[in-house]
């Protein structure tokens, strides 16, 4: 089952949403080794892994649904719950940790009323802890939908979050 080269990376990158997922399912039909590639695309395009899509993936890649579920629950990048509009990833890697990430975490929890791994009721923010995004020089650091917020302190959290409508 080797050789799953996507020979059309270019055209895939031009597609978005369900069209991209359909394209990948077509491309990797009957090929279970492409499972993570396909699940990653669903996660990126839809923001989570809806049950119906996981069933489709199992059928198209010709593999048991339990294996799809197994991978979906194993990797931290996959979520079966819809995410908020903005995803906050607070780095708690070593450098950020020794420079005060735990205090920042407490401030975010207090501000939003949610714990890591949760989403606010209004689906505005999801909050995760991540381990090292490779920006140790500007620790503590967090990202909000990819925007990097350097040198965050417990006192600047509320102000930063208020910028996201």
């Amino acid at each position: 089952m080797a050789g799953t080269t996507c020979t059309c990376n270019c055209s895939v990158s031009n597609l978005t949403g369900e069209a991209k997922i359909e394209h990948l399912l077509e491309l990797y039909k009957g090929n279970p080794s492409a499972l993570i590639v396909v699940l990653s695309a669903i996660q990126t395009e839809l923001g989570y892994l809806p049950k119906d899509w996981m069933v489709r993936v199992a059928e198209e890649l010709n593999m048991p649904l339990t294996d799809v579920y197994g991978a979906a629950t194993f990797y931290a990048a996959f979520s079966m719950q819809p995410k908020g509009k903005y995803t906050i990833n607070l780095c708690v890697g070593t450098a950020c940790y020794v420079k005060g990430a735990p205090e920042v975490q407490a401030a975010i929890e207090k501000e939003l009323g949610i714990k890591p791994g949760e989403t606010t009721e209004d689906r505005k923010f999801s909050f995760n802890l991540v381990h090292c995004i490779g920006a140790c020089g500007i620790a503590p650091v967090m990202t909000i939908n990819g925007d990097v917020c350097p040198k965050v302190t417990k006192d600047t959290v509320a102000e930063i979050l208020s910028k996201y409508e």
Binding site: T4, T5, C6, I36, V37, L39, S40, A71, F74, Y75, A76, A77, F78, H131
Partner: peptide, 12 residues
């Protein structure tokens, strides 16, 4: 020879 990129999915 050819090389393909595989993205991780978040597992140390």
């Amino acid at each position: 020879f050819d090389i393909e990129v595989r993205e991780g999915a978040g597992a140390f």
